[in-house]
Simulated scan of single mutants.
Amino acid sequence: MSGDERLARSFGAEAHTYETGRPDYPIQAVDWLLQPVAGGERRIRVADVGAGTGKLTRVVQELGAEVVAIDPDPQMLATLRESVHAVPTFVGTAERMPLPDDSVDAVVLGQAWHWVDPTAAAAEAGRVLRPGGVLGLVWNLRDDDVDWVARMTAVMHGSHAEEVLAEGPPQVGEPFGELESAEWRWTRPMNRATFLAMARSRSYVITAPADERARIEAGLVGVLDDIGAIGDHVVDLPYVTRAFRALRR
């Protein structure tokens, strides 16, 4: 197993921590992803790939779509089923989805496209999408333009998603057309416990040796003390949600 694959498959060990520590997606961003196929008389069908604990699944469901959740990790899907009901779940990957051809209107990935082979995943999305269907990619990123957030990121180590998106828009190949993008800035109220859960849910931290995890946690506690995130006191963590969509030709 490659290093990237080991990181990508690490989250199940901390599935409940992931559910607690990671933010949900702004409903406006998810609505934007689905706009090209929404609005008709027929209820649209969406595949949430790399669904994890259901952070994106539940928002898609809230918008009235029929959704199926796909993830390579059974532990993540088990946690999803605890809080998101009436959603079929399947073990699978972006490169190999357990879905028939031309069976969904949208394929969405939250916090996941940076883990996939973009050529193979685009081809597979094209297979399961109906003509004119949409591929939607979305990431919640901490806003490192804020000094204390940048300090926190430096302590925790930059994520693979942050590194990939710093190089430009995600790669999306055939059979998709031009990639559109949009972003939203917002804040998430968090206390000390949710800040620590957020850090502990990151693949780099999950797979790090014990002494490295201890170093990260000590450094993060120092930042939290400085910003007043002590006990149950709430501090707003600024986020930027970046979303991308492309239509199947």
Rank of each mutant, 00 (worst) to 15 (best):
G110S: 04
G110D: 13
Q111W: 00
A112N: 06
W113R: 10
V116A: 13
D117A: 06
T119Y: 03
A122C: 12
A122Q: 02
A123G: 09
E124H: 07
A125Q: 02
R127W: 03
L129P: 08
R130Q: 15
P131T: 05
G132R: 12
V134W: 07
V134H: 08
G136T: 01
L137N: 09
V138Q: 14
V138I: 14
N140F: 03
D143A: 01
D144A: 10
W148S: 12
H157T: 02
A161E: 08
E162L: 05
L165M: 02
E167G: 13
P169S: 07
Q171S: 03
G173S: 00
G173W: 14
E174K: 06
E178F: 08
T187E: 05
T187A: 15
P189F: 02
P189T: 03
M190G: 08
N191H: 14
A193Q: 15
L196C: 11
A197R: 10
M198A: 13
R200M: 10
S203G: 09
A214Q: 13
A218N: 13
L220P: 08
V223H: 03
L224D: 15
I227W: 02
A229Q: 04
L237S: 05
V240L: 04
V240H: 10
R245H: 05
L247E: 13
R248V: 03
